[in-house]
């Protein structure tokens, strides 16, 4: 259990290091570079965690596909970020480049939703019993869906209005917000699975993955309601990047926990 607890602490240490680094560099020319490096490194680590989890399974195993799909999301997001580098993508022309970035973001969202859906329905496939009443389950779903719509709804409405005015580039923003909303809805079944497996080794990947999605929810919430809470642009950026880093790092921890569980069982009898 000790190393699983350590996996839960790694993202918190990462978040603390990020806050210290950000405070130290705030206002300097290095700060934007620091923020970008933080984002990309966090995504690479999340990708590594998902790949590590997937490769712990055999080819036909159910959760291998789920983790590969989650890895696919991060890989596509990193590819999209690569198009921001000054390495010749501008030659495609602004419109085609925007189209490519849009496709990559939509593909990433679809991959994330499919992977999370598979992980979220594992309890049903495994015939697990949920340790809460049907009423509590329904309440949890209402709370999670309301929170997800509360933080992604404004973005969906804003992008839908832009599309209505003929701005087709906003299709990417709409697809991204819708993808975020669906992924965040799945916090409910992930949390219920984590609760069902509480106290057992199989529950660790679910607990850590649920925490990752809650951090993503907080990331979206900071962007949506940060200014209304009195955060200035720099403060909102720092807080949102903190939650994005936590989302990625808890994803890394969840992937590593999944790998440790699978390998630990195999090692005992080999």
């Amino acid at each position: 259990m000790t190393r699983y607890r350590a996996l839960a602490l790694v993202p918190l240490a990462w978040g603390l290091a990020f806050l210290l680094g950000s405070a130290w560099l705030e206002g300097s020319a290095a700060h934007p570079v620091f923020l970008r490096a933080h984002v990309e490194l966090a995504k690479v680590l999340a990708l590594g965690g998902a790949v590590a989890a997937a490769l712990a399974f055999e080819r036909a195993d159910y959760l291998r596909r789920a983790w590969l799909l989650i890895a696919g999301c991060m890989a596509l997001l990193l590819l999209r970020d690569a198009t921001l580098l000054p390495v010749g993508f501008d030659a495609m022309g602004a419109q085609r480049l925007a189209g490519l970035r849009g496709l990559l973001v939509v593909g990433a969202n679809l991959s994330q939703i499919a992977g999370t859906w598979m992980l979220a329905r594992a309890w049903n496939r495994a015939a697990l019993a949920l340790p809460v009443s049907r009423l509590s389950q329904a309440l949890l779903v209402v709370v999670v869906v309301s929170a997800a719509l509360g933080v992604t709804g404004p973005g969906m409405v804003q992008n839908a209005r832009l599309i209505g005015r003929g701005d087709l580039a906003a299709l990417t923003g709409l697809a991204s917000a819708m993808g975020d909303a669906v992924s965040l809805f799945l916090i409910a079944p992930l949390l219920l699975t984590a609760l069902a497996l509480r106290g057992g080794l199989f529950g660790w990947p679910y607990s850590l993955l649920t925490t990752s999605y809650v951090a993503w929810l907080a990331y979206d919430a900071t962007i949506a309601v940060g200014p209304a809470l009195g955060l200035d642009a720099a403060g909102a950026r720092t807080v949102s990047e903190l939650f994005r880093g936590l989302g990625c790092l808890f994803g890394l921890s969840a992937g590593l926990a999944q790998r440790f569980v699978v390998r630990q069982l195999r090692r005992r009898t080999s």
């Binding site: 712990a56 959760l63 291998r64 495994a126 199989f202 195999r266």
Partner: peptide, 12 residues
Amino acid sequence: PTLCTFVGRESA
């Protein structure tokens, strides 16, 4: 099947 879902066939 329950164990296979969570940890794969070999570990199950």
